[in-house]
Amino acid sequence: MIEIKKLHKSYPIGKDKLHVLKGIDLHIKEGEFVSIMGSSGSGKSTLLNIVGLLDEHDEGEYYLNGQLIDNLNEKKAAILRNKFLGFVFQSFNLISYKTALENVALPLYYKGMARKERLKIAMEYLEKVELGPWANHLPNELSGGQKQRVAIARALVTQPKVVLADEPTGALDSTTTDNVMDLLRDINNEGMTVFVITHEEEVAEQTKRVVRLKDGVIISDELTKTKTI
């Protein structure tokens, strides 16, 4: 599903360059539940952004769903994101003036789906995250956990190949963290590839494979022993 070979990425800082990713090799197959662990500055967010086509890599190869990602323009990247990827962010990133339902339906709007149909599908997904009764509430009327569930519904609504979650529990307390992780596991159990970035050991433990990143290189890549279903 995701295949990365010798990936390099650096950011210019003044005249110097900050080498963030120093040759990453990673292969994630369809249906995996992977977490990338690392402290801040380890390059894990950069990796996610590149995988999520929100940023471009400098060197190496990246195949998404078998397609080589190279010299994408904004338009092509937008189409690929819409088709293959679903995002869950740490800060939820819901549009504040749209209701939960409209937020969930937005990716379908960019897919070109008719309004009636996309609202119907969005409602199904909201019900899936148990937020049906909150469909017409604005994000600021929801709790943090509810917002993140709306964001997850929004990430799933286009039935993407991969769900990318960037510190999905970073802004949540431990109870809601567990809820969100349960939800992500359920999604994975239905066959979706889930790719989580975190610096919390407890979160990583709940995934099936943990990749540890330090200073831009992978230091370990192992399957978790617990809870195999």
Binding site: G52, E74, K75, A78, R81, F87, L94, L106, Y110, K111
Partner: peptide, 16 residues
Amino acid sequence: TKEFGIRKALGAQPSS
């Protein structure tokens, strides 16, 4: 700007 970033992450093309 942030809203546009969200929209783009969800698949909005620059022209839209």
